[in-house]
């Protein structure tokens, strides 16, 4: 039965809300996007071909709503790329070698990932990133959206996405090394 929107809410509401929350990080916006999704789904439900599950179909609609929302946000807040200036040079000497060599992180990734304190430090480091890098890192590495979706959401090319993600990862690695692994900045 795919034509009862109340059933959609009961069966898929939490899932869709979670999907939206993890990408827009606001209860209010996530709930609004969910409502818009249900309305749009109701308007077009007669065309639902039944080739996918209801959940997949609803998620597809929500995904587009989220992309529109993020694009609008980027436009309105005028978040810039600045792909032309290269902040990665700060991490390297002129001859291309590391200016501060990355240390070995001798911790078990599995247990580290489950360490709540580590996650807090990671989140803090993410919050210090420049706005657009933060947005992209969250969508790609935290929400796990694929490259194509992130590019669409942010209106950027794959090449720019790679550039910005690499910058984010350089900065995050350094931040974690200082604040989690305790390697002094001037060592």
């Amino acid at each position: 039965m795919h034509s009862d929107p109340h059933q959609w809410i009961n069966e898929h509401g939490d899932y869709l809300y979670r999907y939206a929350m993890s990408r827009v990080h606001s209860e209010e916006i996530a709930a609004d996007l969910l409502q818009e999704t249900l309305l749009a789904a109701w308007k077009s439900h007669t065309t639902f071909a039944g080739q996918s599950t209801i959940r997949t179909w609803l998620t597809g609609i929500l995904k587009h709503k989220i992309i529109d929302h993020i694009r609008k946000e980027i436009r309105e807040r005028n978040l810039s790329d600045n792909v032309s200036s290269d902040p990665t040079t700060a991490y390297f000497n002129n001859d291309g070698s590391w200016s501060e060599a990355p240390h070995a992180w001798n911790e078990n990734p599995e247990s580290l990932c489950r360490n709540e304190q580590f996650n807090n430090v990671l989140e803090k480091c993410v919050s210090k990133l420049p706005e657009k890098q933060r947005l992209i890192f969250r969508l790609r590495d935290i929400s796990g959206d694929d490259t194509e979706t992130v590019c669409k959401s942010c209106g950027i090319t794959a090449t720019n996405l790679h550039v910005l993600l690499h910058r984010a990862r350089l900065a995050l690695r350094k931040c974690l090394e200082i604040h989690w692994f305790g390697v002094g900045e001037n060592r």
Binding site: H103, C113, I142, L172, R173
Partner: peptide, 17 residues
């Protein structure tokens, strides 16, 4: 070391999610 670190961050970020 760098590669190991970014792999770990990538995994940790997904699990944090």
């Amino acid at each position: 070391n760098f590669e190991q670190a970014i792999e770990l961050m990538h995994q940790a970020a997904a699990l944090m999610h």
